[in-house]
Simulated assay, not measured.
Amino acid sequence: MPGPLPPLRLTGATVLRDGGLQDRTVAIAGGRISAGPYPAVDLSGFFILPGMVDLSVRALDRDGPPPTETSARAALAEAGRAAAMAGVTTGWATHLWSASGAGAAERAEACLRALDRHRAETLVDLRIALTYDAATLPATERLLAAIRRHGVDRLAFVDAVVATKRTPAFDPARLRAMAEARGLSAEALSQELAGAPVGPRELPRILCRIAEALDILGVSYGSQGDADGETREFFAMLGARICESPAALRAASLARAVGDPVVAAVSGSEAAQVPATALVRAGKCSALASGGRPAALARTAFALADDGVLDLPRAWRLVSEAPAALMRLPDRGVIAQGKRADLAIVNKATRQVEATLVAGRLVFAAGEAAMRFVDARQAAVPVAAE
Rank of each mutant, 00 (worst) to 15 (best):
P330N: 09
P330Y: 08
P330A: 08
P330D: 10
D331H: 12
D331C: 00
R332K: 11
R332D: 02
R332H: 05
R332M: 10
G333V: 03
V334Y: 01
V334T: 14
V334P: 00
I335C: 02
I335Y: 01
I335K: 03
I335F: 08
I335S: 07
I335H: 12
A336Y: 06
A336Q: 13
A336E: 15
A336P: 00
Q337W: 12
Q337I: 15
Q337D: 11
G338Q: 08
G338M: 05
G338H: 05
G338L: 05
G338K: 05
K339Q: 15
K339E: 13
K339D: 06
K339S: 11
R340I: 06
R340W: 06
R340K: 14
R340L: 14
A341W: 11
A341C: 08
D342P: 08
D342W: 10
D342S: 09
L343I: 01
L343H: 02
L343W: 05
A344F: 00
A344S: 14
A344T: 09
I345Q: 07
I345N: 07
I345G: 10
V346M: 07
V346A: 09
N347D: 15
N347H: 14
N347R: 12
N347Q: 12
N347C: 13
N347P: 00
K348V: 07
K348N: 01
A349F: 00
A349L: 13
A349P: 00
T350G: 05
T350S: 15
T350H: 11
T350Q: 12
R351F: 10
Q352D: 14
Q352G: 03
Q352T: 04
V353Y: 05
V353K: 03
V353E: 05
E354R: 05
E354N: 11
E354K: 03
A355L: 07
T356D: 07
T356I: 03
T356P: 04
T356G: 11
T356V: 03
L357M: 12
L357W: 07
L357I: 13
L357F: 13
V358P: 01
V358G: 08
A359K: 13
A359E: 15
R361T: 03
R361W: 04
R361Y: 09
L362R: 01
L362M: 01
L362I: 02
L362Y: 03
L362C: 02
L362F: 07
L362A: 03
V363Q: 02
V363W: 06
V363C: 03
F364H: 14
F364I: 01
F364Y: 15
F364E: 05
A365P: 02
A365Y: 04
A365S: 11
A366D: 14
A366Y: 01
A366Q: 13
G367N: 06
G367W: 01
E368P: 00
A369G: 01
A369N: 00
A369P: 01
A369W: 06
A370W: 01
A370C: 02
A370G: 06
M371H: 13
M371D: 09
R372D: 04
R372A: 14
R372Q: 13
R372T: 03
F373E: 04
F373R: 08
F373K: 08
F373M: 06
F373L: 06
V374L: 12
D375H: 12
D375W: 11
D375Q: 14
D375S: 12
D375F: 09
D375G: 14
A376P: 00
A376T: 10
A376G: 15
A376C: 09
